[in-house]
């Protein structure tokens, strides 16, 4: 456990250093980006000083860490340096809601597809299921999102276009974000199911005369679940990243929107804090995955 904690901390500190390095390298600073092509003169030096841009990078990083620890962290955007944590706190639930829903959507789509394909390996059913699932990987989210909006919000008028006011607003973004994972999971399910179906206990169960459905779901599927749990954990990071594009398309007020805006504005502190939170989510989910894995499979538990 200590080992896991140490590597988690390393990952987070590493991510913070990496993002700070990039912020240092990327040209442009918050004051200039904010002013843009402004027709009137403003006091840039004072604005820069106000947000600590006159300090060397290591001092800025130190101030960041200190302010984060005390909860006093403010944006790098003068003159109103709003607190960063409340904004992050407001965005986090939205992103979690979106990613978890996307994961649910993908499971609901993928498991039946994958199991079906495995059960009828080599038949047109298999081909069709895999064809559908692979198409999911192939559609970029920024294309799928608007297409879904045009179809379901505009032509059919079933769902709203964008925003986050009710569960109805969640449907399209969750589908957009979930399809790629669904496609991947369906293939995973198929592969693991095929392996499970070859195991001895399945043969035994078949020999005992159990119905194919029982064999498929009770015996094979349960054992195929384990690798899926691991994959889900690993894919969560990808899902978080994908949420950035999806949130932009659907004006979903999550961390991705926060992060893109912060990068555009060169709001260093918000970028750093959001990246840290992304990393934190990833690390937490992976740790949870490991724990679940150990819990599900006693062999792993004994080994570690």
């Amino acid at each position: 456990m200590t080992r896991r904690l140490v590597s988690a901390v390393i990952a987070m500190v590493g991510a913070l250093l990496l993002v700070s390095l990039f912020l240092h390298l990327v040209p442009g600073d918050p004051v200039d980006v904010m002013l843009g092509e402004q027709a009137t003169q403003v006091d840039r030096a004072a604005l820069r000083q106000a947000v600590g841009l006159d300090l060397p990078w290591y001092a800025q990083l130190w101030t960041f860490a200190r302010d984060l620890a005390t909860g006093e962290l403010r944006t790098s955007l003068p003159p109103f340096q709003r607190k960063v944590l409340p904004a992050l706190g407001a965005a986090l639930p939205y992103t979690l809601l979106l990613t978890v829903s996307a994961m649910a959507v993908s499971l609901v789509l993928a498991l039946p597809l994958g199991v079906m394909a495995a059960a009828r390996r080599g038949t047109p059913v298999d081909a069709a299921a895999m064809g559908v699932s692979v198409a999911g990987v192939a559609l970029p989210r920024f294309w799928l999102g608007p297409v879904l909006i045009i179809l379901f919000a505009l032509k059919l008028d079933w769902l709203p276009v964008s925003g986050a006011e009710s569960w109805r607003h969640l449907v399209l973004p969750a589908f957009t974000l979930g399809t790629a994972l669904a496609a991947f999971l369906a293939r995973m399910t198929r592969a693991t199911m095929l392996e499970a179906l070859r195991e001895d206990y399945v043969t035994v169960a078949r020999a005992k005369g159990l119905s194919p459905g029982v064999v498929l779901w009770k015996h094979a599927f349960r054992n195929a679940l384990l690798p899926l749990v691991t994959v889900l954990g690993l894919e969560f990071g990808a899902l978080l990243g994908g949420a950035i594009v999806t949130e932009k398309v659907f004006a979903w007020p999550g961390m991705g929107t926060l992060l893109l805006t912060a990068i555009e504005k060169r709001d260093y502190n918000t970028v750093r804090a959001t990246v840290l939170l992304f990393t934190f989510c990833y690390v937490v989910v992976n740790t949870l995955t490991d724990l679940t894995y150990a819990w599900v499979d006693p062999r792993v538990r004994r080994r570690s």
């Binding site: 608007p146 909006i149 045009i150 505009l154 276009v161 964008s162 932009k248 398309v249 659907f250 004006a251």
Partner: peptide, 11 residues
């Protein structure tokens, strides 16, 4: 209301 994506604004 802030909608950052142009296509979404149009829709």
């Amino acid at each position: 209301r802030v909608v950052r994506d142009e296509t979404t604004r149009v829709l």
